[in-house]
């Protein structure tokens, strides 16, 4: 875990410690739920018979190789490793903290960051933007890990 990740963790822990929650996880999880909620609203607005997000569909998105994007990035797991709890690596060799929320609790909080990486990574792997349904499924899967 990077220095900043630890520092952020400590700050979040300090904030959460003041509340009734025993750890920082739940505070972050709440912020993450807000983001999932946003994708739910977007998905419903598309009117394609949305019912609920599915962690299982998220898992499939995470581990499948659709062969539709850029050749160097066949799947999400190319960088994030097949194990959501594992430490990934960019193609340029930099470490990526685990995607599982339980392992990196300060993830999926910042809307701009999530949107930036969905735009880039979905474009690289799928050759297109991800739909709100895919984004919500992905976050739901990671929240369960």
């Amino acid at each position: 875990m990077s220095f900043f990740a630890i520092a952020r963790l400590l700050i979040v822990a300090a904030v959460a410690g003041g509340s009734a929650w025993s750890a920082n996880g739940p505070a972050n999880a709440a912020m993450m739920q807000d983001n999932i909620e946003r994708y739910r609203v977007e998905a419903k607005a598309l009117g394609q018979g949305f019912e609920a997000f599915s962690a299982e569909r998220g898992r499939i998105l995470f581990s499948s190789s659709p062969a539709a994007g850029k050749p160097d990035t066949p799947s999400c797991t190319a960088c994030h490793t097949t194990d959501p709890a594992g430490v990934g690596q960019t193609r340029a060799g930099k470490e990526i903290a685990p995607m599982a929320l339980s392992r990196t609790p300060d993830r999926y909080i910042d809307v701009k960051k999530i949107e930036k990486w969905f735009r880039r990574n979905c474009n690289s792997v799928l050759g297109r933007e991800c739909t709100p349904l895919e984004k919500g499924d992905f976050l739901t899967f990671m929240a369960s890990q």
Binding site: K70, R91, K116, R119, S124
Partner: peptide, 11 residues
């Protein structure tokens, strides 16, 4: 940046 060494690094 959309096609940055085989990746999308757009901003």
């Amino acid at each position: 940046l959309e096609n940055h060494y085989g990746e999308d690094a757009s901003l």
